[in-house]
């Protein structure tokens, strides 16, 4: 609170009392608190977060995962007799509105042509798509951050090599390289598929992180740490990364949203998840021709893809607003 132009501040007796006497309402908030506050105020992001949590809970609790059983009594692979043309039994219009009441019925999302329960199948698709997207986002973010941080911090030859490599990888369109990799690893299971796609989706983030690092390394606190003999690893991890954690989190979130759509596209083209497993993109691909006869086979997985991608995008937007200090200004 003392005036910085004072050569020798001396005792400043009344400073604290003066601040109190003004009755000023300056609430001290930490950076993290500010971010959290801004995020929770972002209505679209909160909506997205709630929707995503509900979808994840629904998908993983209903049919269970790994060996954990779920509450839904059917599975996604058993063949059964097709009832009522496989029409969905889900009803959401209450009787007093002239509907048939709110109930799930035997097959809420209907059945496919061999009688598999389409609700279970869709939930399985959601699980697989989410898992792949999450792995892709995680792997891509970690690699991108590592490469970008290393290049930005060390500069010189290391930077040249890493960034030229990034340039090379960026030249190959993502969908193309993902399709080629998917062609090879699609039947090795979703974890492998997620990993290999993650291996090629880091380029954008690497450039971003490098740019941030280039400007950060010129800052005084980094100079100070270096002058104090702190190791490079420690400077990067302890001093620099925390400063761009916002950028990374936002990029990671948006990468997951993009990965959802990428996986869907790959599976649609036939280079993604392979039989007997399924994913949302694969369901749409399989049943696109059935649209005019059994549209529900097309609608349900599509609505889930859009709901997931939209939620994640909104969360990413909310995070960006929350981390971006410029948003804190007076609205003008």
């Amino acid at each position: 609170m003392s005036n910085p132009t004072t050569p020798d501040p001396g005792p400043v007796p009344a400073a604290d009392a003066a601040t109190d006497a003004q009755g000023m309402t300056v609430v001290a908030r930490t950076q993290a608190q500010m971010v959290r506050r801004r995020f929770f105020r972002h209505r679209a992001a909160m909506g997205g977060l709630i929707a995503l949590v509900l979808i994840v809970l629904l998908a993983f609790s209903s049919i269970g995962f790994a060996s954990v059983p779920g509450w839904w009594d059917k599975d996604y692979f058993s063949i059964a007799t097709v009832e009522n043309g496989g029409r969905p039994t889900l009803s959401v219009v209450p009787t007093w509105l002239g509907g048939s009441g709110m109930h799930l019925g035997e097959h809420p999302f209907g059945q496919d042509n061999v009688g598999k329960d389409y609700f279970a199948l869709t939930m399985r698709g959601v699980q697989q798509s989410l898992t792949i997207a999450f792995i892709v986002g995680l792997v891509g973010t970690v690699i991108g951050t590592l490469i970008g941080a290393t290049a930005g911090y060390f500069r010189g030859r290391i930077e040249a090599v890493l960034m030229r490599f990034t340039d090379v990888m960026i030249t190959i369109p993502l969908l193309v390289v993902a399709a080629v990799l998917g062609r090879r690893y699609g039947d090795s299971g979703i974890v492998v598929l997620g990993l290999v796609i993650g291996l090629v989706t880091w380029t954008g983030l690497a450039r971003l992180v490098r740019g941030e690092f280039l400007s950060l390394r010129e800052k005084e606190f980094v100079e100070a740490a270096r002058a104090a003999g702190t190791s490079a690893r420690r400077i990067i991890v302890k001093h620099m990364l925390p400063n761009i954690v916002g950028v990374i989190i936002v990029a990671a979130t948006l990468a997951i949203a993009a990965a959802i759509l990428l996986e869907a596209a790959l599976s649609f083209l036939g280079f993604g998840v392979q039989d007997p497993d399924t994913s949302l993109g694969k369901l749409i691909s399989t049943y696109q021709t059935a649209f005019s006869t059994r549209p529900w086979l097309f609608w349900f997985p599509g609505v889930f893809i859009i709901a997931i991608a939209l939620s994640v995008n909104f969360i990413g937007d909310g995070l960006r607003d929350a981390f971006d200090p410029r948003q804190n200004r007076v609205r003008d």
Partner: peptide, 24 residues
């Protein structure tokens, strides 16, 4: 010797009553 004014200007949102300079 420099003679600084101690304290800070008041918040423009919640102006204290009285002379705004009085706390300093």
């Amino acid at each position: 010797r420099l003679r600084p004014i101690v304290g800070t200007p008041p918040s423009l949102i919640n102006m204290p009553t009285g002379c705004p300079f009085s706390p300093r």
